[in-house]
Design a protein around this nucleic acid. Structure first.
Length: 305
DNA sequence: TTCCAGGCCCATG
DNA sequence: CATGGGCATGGA
């Protein structure tokens, strides 16, 4: 990015936004959103249909083109009072460590459909593959909205477009058995069986129930969508990583693995009004510390004598 | 090669 | 209501 440059094109200029207590890289890399690409010193991606370049310099966020500064600031939730929110987290060692390590990570405000669809595709997949599926769907079926900073960008394909695809198209994009789930949900949205914007006014429990009625959406995905798209900051998604963290750090020494239901009950009461934020910090910290130096448990070689 | 991944669906007790 | 098997794909 080249702030203040006079040469061609709006996308070469950028606006400066005050962004204290913010970590752009952690925010875009923590597994809540899957389409941002590192480019030079910053990142390129879309906010809805709008292509944007982002770059952090200390407590300043540079946004290009400059007219999208407020859009980006809202998307990145720079208005969340992060210090106050983190102060509500429980003060146990696991939480304190994660909160310190993830300082500045913000839960962004994602468009509902794109969030719902990507998390339907996320079941039993690693983050890199979720990214791959997102990019493949965008490239093959989304509207081109770039390029920006030399990078071709595509909007996430709309519900109507996805609904018009064949299951085979989605399988060809790497979705596997998630293909009918995404297709079914896209058709439910297109046909008006569910109104994603209309859900905004619902209380948490009703939103959760409505989302769980969609194909491919269970408690975990519904909590992700509630947290990442509907700003239900107390929603606490429990995936295999978080389940492991909870069992190891909060239920160590149980004779038998604590059931998922018990983990849910515990998390709902323990982590407080911003439990979703707490969860995201635990998740990102677990993933970023385990990915490094992760040594698959070494296979014991059986000796034959 | 094997294991694992931001789970959900459906069939059984 | 809890539990278990099945499910596609790609990265490590």
């Amino acid at each position: 990015m080249n702030p203040g440059s006079e040469d061609d094109g709006d996308s070469r200029r950028s606006a400066s936004v005050a962004a204290p207590d913010f970590n752009l890289a952690a925010t875009l890399n923590c597994g809540q959103v899957f389409h941002w690409q590192a480019a030079g010193a910053g990142w390129v991606g879309t906010v809805g249909d709008a292509p944007v370049c982002l770059e952090q310099r200390g407590d300043t966020l540079l946004v290009a083109p400059p007219g999208r500064a407020s859009l980006a600031a809202r998307y990145l939730a720079l208005d969340h009072p992060l210090g106050e929110m983190v102060a509500t987290f429980p003060a146990d060692p696991a939480m304190r460590t994660a909160a310190a390590a993830c300082r500045g990570l913000r839960v962004v405000r994602q468009p509902a459909w794109e969030c719902l669809a990507t998390f339907i595709t996320s079941a039993m997949k690693g983050v890199p593959h979720i990214r791959l599926m997102s990019h493949t769907l965008r490239r093959r079926h989304g509207e081109p909205v770039g390029p920006i900073a030399g990078v071709e960008l595509f909007a996430y394909p709309t519900p109507a477009v996805v609904a018009g695809l064949a299951e085979a198209d989605l399988r060809a994009a790497g979705l596997g058995w998630r293909a009918p789930h995404l297709l079914g949900t896209a058709r439910a949205v297109r046909d008006g069986a569910v109104d994603l914007e209309g859900l905004r006014g619902l209380p948490d429990a009703e939103l959760h129930r409505a989302l769980c009625g969609l194909p491919g959406v269970g408690p975990k995905v519904a909590n992700c969508v509630g947290l990442f798209a509907y700003e239900r900051l107390g929603a606490f998604p429990i995936d295999v990583w978080i389940a492991r963290v909870l069992r190891e750090r909060y239920f160590a020494g149980e004779a038998r693995p604590v059931t998922l239901g018990r983990l849910r009950d515990f998390a709902a009461g323990y982590f407080g009004p911003f439990g979703g934020y707490a969860q995201q910090y635990l998740f990102h910290h677990a993933r970023s510390t385990k990915a490094r130096g992760r040594r698959p448990v070494r296979r014991v070689r059986r000796e034959s004598a």
